[in-house]
């Protein structure tokens, strides 16, 4: 436990030190890259809650990234720039959609669950494409960033970076608390043995649905931040490639571990960045790498440092 806290401390210090270092080296691009990674790490943390701890293989988590982003975009479109309202709507809308999708799909299990979550996210993706008012297929530029008057200005790249870092660390802590609470234990029990958990009086459905909604809401926050990061929203955020990548962030890092999704997001996006530097056809290398990682690298990056929690 103490070793972990020390490692977390070192990681946090490194991340805090990154913007001044990057500026000193004259490479402000790295702040941008790291911010994107941190925001997507938030999404991966939320997915890990249901995928890693809940055993719910959701192939549609990008939906909530998109909903969070669209919440910011659409509110801004109608002239509402208040960041707190943006966040509130992003969380509320994501939770609502997660409740609807979860209520239908959690009844199913295994491969059905995978296909159903994928199909519903695809439905939202097509909805995004058909919304011509908000840019349709091409997407829409944000009129303004979310405004948190007096607190922080998201147009400042370094300030925004620290916001993303803060939110990510907060969510790491939140997930840790959720997973180790009574609720989290019931959730994990349902994953490891559904029949037994039912027998001792914990029917999995309500716990899974609640976790699904919490994860959706958390990912909605990531979506709202992501819209502010790119200054642009597109239906592509909800595309199934995005869902697939998010699953890989969790898996590469190590499922059901606190640090896993963060490590995995850094690993995947940094590898992508390196490959993109090499060749335009980077996916032809990434694809087989991912296949190999699934076949041979079972425990993920976190497995190198820690024993898996569950």
């Amino acid at each position: 436990m103490r070793a972990r806290l020390i490692l977390w401390g070192i990681a946090a210090l490194l991340l805090i030190a990154l913007p001044p270092l990057a500026t000193a080296l004259g490479q402000p691009y790295y702040v941008d890259l790291a911010r994107r990674i941190l925001i997507l790490a938030i999404a991966a943390i939320s997915l890990n809650l249901i995928l890693g701890y809940g055993g719910l293989v959701s192939f549609g988590h990008a939906a909530y990234l998109g909903i969070g982003a669209y919440a910011v975009g659409i509110l801004g479109f109608y002239g509402i720039a208040n960041g707190w309202i943006h966040l509130l709507v992003a969380i509320g809308a994501s939770a609502l959609v997660a409740a609807a999708i979860g209520a239908v799909s959690i009844r199913a299990s295994g491969i059905y669950f995978i296909m159903i979550t994928l199909a519903f996210t695809q439905m939202l993706y097509y909805l995004g494409i058909s919304l011509d008012v908000y840019g349709g297929d091409d997407g829409m530029r944000l009129k303004s960033r979310s405004q948190f008057a007096g607190l922080v200005d998201l147009r400042d790249p370094v300030a925004f970076y620290y916001v993303a870092l803060g939110v990510m660390l907060l969510f790491v802590f939140l997930t840790y608390r959720i997973v180790n609470s009574r609720f989290g234990m019931a959730l994990r029990a349902a994953k490891s043995n559904e029949a037994r958990s039912r027998a001792i009086g914990f029917p999995p459905y309500p716990y899974r649905l609640a976790a699904f909604i919490i994860a959706g809401a958390m990912c909605g926050v990531a979506g709202a931040l992501y819209a502010n990061h790119t200054g642009y929203i597109t239906p592509g955020l909800m595309a199934w490639h995005q869902s697939g990548e998010m699953m890989f962030m969790v898996i590469l890092g190590g499922m059901a571990s606190t640090a896993g999704p963060v490590l995995g997001t850094f690993a995947l996006l940094l590898v992508e960045e390196v490959l993109k530097g090499w060749t335009e056809h980077w996916q032809v290398i990434l694809g087989p790498l991912l296949v190999l990682s699934v076949v041979f690298f079972r425990r993920g990056l976190a497995g190198i440092f820690f024993k898996p929690d569950a």
């Binding site: 995928l51 293989v57 192939f59 995978i114 697939g244 699953m247 890989f248 898996i251 056809h281 980077w282 996916q283 032809v284 990434l286 694809g287 087989p288 790498l289 991912l290 296949v291 699934v294 076949v295």
Partner: peptide
């Protein structure tokens, strides 16, 4: 889960 992930990797490969 593993099957979905590995075949997802294959899709990236084939498309590219």
């Amino acid at each position: 889960l593993d099957q979905v992930l590995a075949t997802f990797g294959l899709i990236l490969f084939f498309n590219e």
